[in-house]
Design a binder for these strands. Sequence first.
DNA 1: CTTTTTGCAAATGATTTGCATTAAC
DNA 2: GTTAATGCAAATCATTTGCAAAAAG
Lengths: 139, 139
Amino acid sequence: MRVPELTDLLRRRGMRVTSQRLLIDRALRDHGGHLSAEQVHELVEPSLPGVTQQTVYSTLALLTELGVARRVAAPGASARFEARVDDHHHMVCQRCGAIQDIDARVPVGRAVGAAREAGFVPESANVTVLGLCAACAAD
Amino acid sequence: MRVPELTDLLRRRGMRVTSQRLLIDRALRDHGGHLSAEQVHELVEPSLPGVTQQTVYSTLALLTELGVARRVAAPGASARFEARVDDHHHMVCQRCGAIQDIDARVPVGRAVGAAREAGFVPESANVTVLGLCAACAAD
DNA sequence: CTTTTTGCAAATGATTTGCATTAAC
DNA sequence: GTTAATGCAAATCATTTGCAAAAAG
């Protein structure tokens, strides 16, 4: 059950394998956390001198579309991206915006079923726990 | 189990009871759905000629802080606000951004517990079902 | 060589900020 | 009267768009 190489995914779609795409994918994967587009830019700048923020944006959108990255919406903050695409949940700090993974198994079937009954076509379902992270709670 | 009047909440905090605050709160409540800041502005303009978008923003932030409204983050879209503050979930259309309520009971306790173990102080937890709404799925 | 992708530049959209005026208390 | 809230204007931040140049296949 391993993730297909980005190179393969791109070739299969007739898209081009560029250093920007490979390195942004790798940066996201290596970091392992939840990064804003700007953080990704800062992270890849050293290995991709002159890379623009727009390339980062379009590449992150592409990676998300290809299923090798996921976009996480943080209330009142910029979008965050992560390389984890398996089933998991998130804790979002309402003060500093930090996002952390939660690996608990939650039966979301009822919510998905209710959505389906309302005519929706569900693609994914996950839990967002809002609150304060350890650092912010400590004040 | 009724919601305290906004007037009371404001007075208790020594804040002022203004027509803007009362009417924006009422508009959100009467509409019942999930509105963007701009939609709220359009909705209250007739009864509050000359209200600015900034007043709408600050008032919505205040109502959220007071606990009489909730901010819902839609991935890649502007923030939406709703008057429902009880426990419920959301279905978000990834194409048009529409948000609908889901009233299924989902045991999110495991996720909340895991967050707590990680040092977080949870305030709320809810499920977001991503997918396509009936209209967008029909193409 | 052909077409996609990138970089550059500017535009857009959402939201915030600073300050004088107005309205609550 | 005092002070907080609003309106007005401009600024900021995130993200998107259009087009010529560069790179991939």
